[in-house]
């Protein structure tokens, strides 16, 4: 059986990555908006984002909107790929007949 990516294979981080995957490639979302979409506390979301950033799955950039600092979060190319692979693996587990790894 294929190993599931341990970084994504945790409920909270899976929700974060799934949410970010709906953004178009090249887009980022402001931290507070992401927090609101996920209904997570800021501290909780930060912890998970840090783990995802360490794995190279999300890119976090600090910028300014006018005078207020803003934190923007987006899925990296690697993160998008990891999420797609994870989803593929899950689908294959549920329906082994359609899996490409099947002989």
């Amino acid at each position: 059986m294929t190993e599931l990516d341990p970084v994504i294979h945790a409920q909270a981080r899976l929700r974060v990555v799934a949410s970010l995957s709906t953004l178009n490639v090249g887009d980022k979302i402001a931290f507070p908006r992401l927090q609101e979409l996920l209904a997570m506390t800021a501290g909780n979301l930060s912890v998970h984002l840090r783990k995802l950033e360490e794995a190279g799955y999300v890119e976090i950039s600090k910028t300014h909107r006018g005078r207020t600092p803003a934190t923007l979060v987006g899925l990296s190319r690697r993160g998008r790929l990891a999420f797609e692979e994870y989803t593929e693996t899950i689908r294959a587990l549920l329906d082994p007949t359609s899996s490409k790894e099947q002989p």
Binding site: L4, H9, A10, Q11, A12, L14, R15, A18, S19, S21, T22, N44, T87, I90, R91, L93, L94
Partner: peptide, 19 residues
């Protein structure tokens, strides 16, 4: 919430619902 989804079906449901 650091724990994995209970099974593959739960994981897929979580992905679809969240998206």
């Amino acid at each position: 919430d650091d724990s994995p989804p209970t099974d593959a079906a739960a994981a897929l449901r979580l992905i679809q619902d969240q998206r």
